[in-house]
Design a protein around this nucleic acid. Sequence first.
DNA 1: TTAAAATTTGTATTTGAATCTCAATAAATT
DNA 2: AATTTATTGAGATTCAAATACAAATTTTAA
Lengths: 152, 152
Amino acid sequence: MKSELEIFKEYIRGRGLRQTPEREKILQEITAFHGHFDVDELYLRLRRQGIKISKASIYRTLPLLLDCGLIREVDFTDGHWHYESIYGQPHHCHLRCLKCGAIVEFEDPLLICVEQKLAWRFGYLVKTHTLEVQGVCPECQERLGTGDDGGD
Amino acid sequence: MKSELEIFKEYIRGRGLRQTPEREKILQEITAFHGHFDVDELYLRLRRQGIKISKASIYRTLPLLLDCGLIREVDFTDGHWHYESIYGQPHHCHLRCLKCGAIVEFEDPLLICVEQKLAWRFGYLVKTHTLEVQGVCPECQERLGTGDDGGD
DNA sequence: TTAAAATTTGTATTTGAATCTCAATAAATT
DNA sequence: AATTTATTGAGATTCAAATACAAATTTTAA
């Protein structure tokens, strides 16, 4: 299987763009970390390693990584986008705690059935799906008492 | 069943807030329209009827309507939030066309199974879910040719 | 290897959605 | 009707994201 870097280089070439150390470092950091991140976190993580890349470059590189399918937008929490590396990872969904924000990743084959039914019923060429299930994690249930209703 | 306005009034009273014509007009317009909307659309729709309410008031009222469960955030397309009225409506998910933005609403009982499995497996108190399935609608498949891969 | 051509970078600025400030107004309570 | 307090509207502010521009870097080819 091709590495993320190979995928990215092919994409860059295919689009007539240029390979730059900044773009490679950004991709490298994202694939090395492998978790949810936002622009600030990514910027700071690079800085801590002595890698000085401007936020403007990060903002310019993320759409490229999105476009070639190496990352995806996860959610719009806290008034800005969060991302995650997805290449080579099986597709997964998120279970989010409404109280503490904890995230559990899961996958359920039933979603393929849902997709297939939709394709048949509405004639769509189905590409992917984004599912977030919201609830209260066991720790927060404990912490807040059993009578908690999950509201704010 | 209580009307949306009754629900809202009870919420307002319960929180020690005030009933104002602005808040009522906003709610009225949302329930009358019954579709997806964003702040600008709502503002313009009110304006077209000669109802002058500032965007600031709309921005201040939406969180109240969210909080009492009359509307929900649908997506963050175009760099800003979109909403929809949900009171009295059965929960539903969205199937979105990646090309033209068309939205089909659907519901699939399999999602209840998914929720139940998550509750059991991770101990979460599951509240709700948000599922968006992305693909290409029949019209866009036609328009763009069958060889289209759904990318941009 | 060098130079020309075109893209990318960083800095500073701009954009736009969403929030906040504050004086004027209006709702609730007495 | 008067008092208290929340809400409104206009404009200022905030912050993530996008952009302009000059300097630097990559690419291509001579």
